[in-house]
Amino acid sequence: MAFIDESRAPGLAAISAASPGDYLALLKPRVMSLVIFTALTGLLFAPRHINPVIGFASLLAIAVGAGAAGALNMWYDADIDAVMRRTRRRPIPTGRVTPREALAFGLTLAIFAVLTLGLVANLLAAALLAFTIFFYVVIYTMWLKRSTPQNIVIGGAAGALPPVVAYAAASGNVSLVALILFAIIFVWTPPHFWALALVRSAEYERAGIPMMPNVKGAGRTRLEILIYSIVLALVGVLPFVCGLASPLYGALSVVLGAVFIGLALNVYRVRSGEGADTCAMRLFGFSILYLFLLFAELLGERLLALAAGS
């Protein structure tokens, strides 16, 4: 048995020069931070108070599971990443980590995260985490991403599931509260990614990814961004309407939703020149702020309520 794989470079031993930072990059740390943030909100909205140690371990397992899905995504999409400006510096395209190493790393972490969540929290949460990883890697990355312009619409479910997983970890079930948090992220995903896709459509075209602007055209994409933005503004108010959040959250969600629609209207109206790209990037940037502020307000209110003992 050969201990060193020489098949890729005969005569030269394939010794890894990857740093721990390269492996961290495989986990998509920025996505992981968003997962932790939204999952923490789901965890605290559960009716049963979870022990802080169990809660921390559950959050860690969910974050690592999301990171593992990111690593498996980078393993499968290395060919696409190599031709796109945004992703060509990732560890696999630059050769710092081999695809096999990324695959082994991702699979190991995915199995470990699911087992840990099952042992620490409960089987429902572990099953949901396993489903999230499966959905992101197999349904989105391997299937939808390269085959339909609805890729990020359906695939967005994977990104929206972490608060549901965390809620299940704390409570042992899934309720309307968890589904509302899911819905906010799910509806937020299309306008967020399509705003970027409008600006980077040439890159997606070159990489052969059927994003909405490449397949249905920029005009149709602008219309769908506007429609999703209106739906998002309505869904964003749901936590207040359902009595989960204060009037302050209600007011904040209305204002932020109105700004979101306003920026989407600009994207719809300004269709050519540098102004069009500026409008799209403005919406893209604001969409991140929108999601962060809504969940920060929900999280803050929940922490205050827990501190007050309710």
Binding site: I4, I15, S16, A17, A18, S19, P20, Y23
Partner: peptide
Amino acid sequence: VVLTPEQSKSRRQRNIA
């Protein structure tokens, strides 16, 4: 196999991590 200084350094960092 004789590791280059860079490979030795990165392996040590990985082991520590």
